[in-house]
Design a protein around this nucleic acid. Sequence first.
DNA 1: TCTAGAATCTTGTCAATGTCTGGATCGAGG
DNA 2: CCTCGATCCAGACATTGACAAGATTCTAGA
Lengths: 201, 201
Amino acid sequence: MADPRKRYHHGDLRAALLASAESKLSREGAHTLSLRELAREVGVSHGAPREHFQNKQALLDALAEAGFDRLGQELEATMAGDEGSFTERLTVFAQTYVRFASRQPALLELMFASLHRPGADPSLREANDRAFAAPIALIASARANGEIVDDDPDRVAMAVLATLQGLAWLANSGIVGDRPIDTVVAVTIEMLTRGLKPTPS
Amino acid sequence: MADPRKRYHHGDLRAALLASAESKLSREGAHTLSLRELAREVGVSHGAPREHFQNKQALLDALAEAGFDRLGQELEATMAGDEGSFTERLTVFAQTYVRFASRQPALLELMFASLHRPGADPSLREANDRAFAAPIALIASARANGEIVDDDPDRVAMAVLATLQGLAWLANSGIVGDRPIDTVVAVTIEMLTRGLKPTPS
DNA sequence: TCTAGAATCTTGTCAATGTCTGGATCGAGG
DNA sequence: CCTCGATCCAGACATTGACAAGATTCTAGA
């Protein structure tokens, strides 16, 4: 009974399955993930996972939600405090996000796939909102301060979001090559904010 | 024998499979695509597709390559000619691309999934290069003319590419809401190029 | 402490799928 | 006409996700 894999009751099968799934997810794609294989690796029968995840999709959703939680934690950690200009803080946000994206490409893909799937679990959208609370607050305050053009309320956020998502995609596409990704991110954000600033004219 | 589905030799099974696959792809995701189901729909036995596609992945690759070809054609069509400023022409490019992306989200996803898969068919990368020949030429000429900052050769292209990909993602994520996507694209590109122009000091 | 009842896990089963194999059928060139 | 390659069929196999019924363990209440 020292080895939980031998006991009839695993003890923490749900967490073990998620851990094993995430490990495999980071090594291979999401489509190679098999419930039965996960069960084997954890040392449990093929029917056991059903007690914790009704579906395969339910497991993937749980994986995605955990991903949003961790992303949110990292964003909160690096964006804590008020120091720095808007551009600097936005760069920190972008770099944190892109680092997360390039560290766990498959997870990020799974996260948004689950999020955008029709009929997705509402808790996923909530997790997404929680994760991006800090950067959204940053943009809102910058708009309030007049640091960026006061256009359509969401237009700026959307442009930033689009650029950011594009950078994350770029980091995973191999196009960046051997360039330091942080530099690419910083340059792009700098260019973007230059366009966001009110024209001095 | 009037009905090709009744003849022993289908006549154009490869094309029929691709057409059926693309139809299903646009209606549902890529993960619900089944070789056997495609074979049934075309009226052929489950082993027949193997004569034209060694793998399921091979079929998906062919689908992706066809997607790149069509995207390239659309880009070439809308970007033909030399009229307009750099910003205008870039906007046309972005709008064409994003329209394609929102018209066929699943296809675009499949295209890049196939492209970035390790050990992908080199012909896919070639198809990708062909598709983006026009916009790449546009950026190159703009750089040569001094219309945009002459920084790291590829840095500008990467920033544009990232933003564009982000816009495409945005269009498919439902975040845009009921805003006209073309307007969002135009505004973002305008903001970006404002940051790309040489600073008037 | 004893004992229902819930929670958890096992085993068996089913339909569906991707892939492989051997054989049948068709079509074009000699 | 006949052969040979291209094309398609029919059968088989392992794997997978899902479901159901039963075994085992845990827990809460008497």
